[in-house]
């Protein structure tokens, strides 16, 4: 440099350019911020209404571990629960909306909100053929048919659905409207056992019986 002193002009010009930039961006942000918020809200809204088919409206519910929504019908009755939950996929987070039936706690539908999985492989988790497998389930003990070449992505979605199903027990505390319905059902003991559970229980009883006979026989 010709002179070692920093010229004030350098500082002045750069500062002015930065200020001008900030002013322009403030205006643009003011214009676009409401639109961007609206887009995000619209996405969530569409997802909630699509996983809870009977709902015409919904409201968010405070929840500790999940983003929780209750779907409402015309008469403001709770007709379903939508839970937004995410986990790490193969290349980034996978954000999924899971719909649960209020009475049976069965999965009504699964919708992938956002993901960054590999196109053609992991990205196929958004396809109905894969998502549809979760419909009507109360557990994911029965095998899900995973997408060929995308084990990690498929299992990530499986994990989310599993978390949501397991977490469903807690929802009744967080959703006052739901409490009575589920409590009633518990009183009646109206829980359906899955085939696997029945088989497991029978096997358990048989092996117990065997131990008892073996033991007494040995004596």
């Amino acid at each position: 440099m010709a002179n070692d002193k920093i010229q004030p002009r350098l500082i002045l010009v750069l500062t002015l350019i930065t200020i001008a930039s900030a002013i322009v961006l403030t205006f643009i942000d003011d214009l676009t911020a409401p639109l961007i918020a609206e887009q995000a809200e619209k996405r969530v809204q569409e997802a909630v209404l699509s996983v809870v088919p009977e709902a015409v409206d919904f409201e968010e519910v405070e929840s500790e571990n999940f983003e929780l929504f209750q779907g409402l019908d015309e008469s403001e009755e709770v007709v379903g629960i939508a839970v937004q939950h995410q986990t790490q996929g193969y290349t980034g987070p996978i954000d999924v909306m899971v719909g649960l039936d209020v009475d049976t706690r069965q999965v009504t539908a699964v919708e992938v909100l956002s993901h960054t999985e590999t196109p053609g492989l992991g990205a196929r988790i958004v396809e109905e053929q894969f998502r549809g497998q979760f419909e009507g389930r109360k557990s994911i003990e029965e095998e899900i048919e995973i997408i060929a070449g995308a084990t990690i992505s498929s299992e990530a979605v499986e994990e989310i659905v599993d978390d949501v199903i397991k977490g469903a027990q807690d929802f009744e505390d967080e959703m006052p409207g739901l409490e009575t319905i589920i409590a009633d059902e518990d009183d009646l003991g109206a829980r359906d056992f899955s085939e696997q559970e029945v088989v497991d229980a029978e096997q358990g009883i048989q092996s117990l019986a065997k131990i008892v006979t073996d033991y007494s026989g040995g004596e």
Binding site: I17, S21, L25, I28, L31, A33, I36, R43
Partner: peptide, 22 residues
């Protein structure tokens, strides 16, 4: 200075595309 100017236009593109072409 160039970078600040470029960054300004990029931020405009970013905000506008998120608002209109989500």
């Amino acid at each position: 200075s160039f970078i600040v100017v470029i960054a300004t236009f990029v931020t405009i593109v970013d905000l506008v595309s998120r608002a209109y072409f989500p």
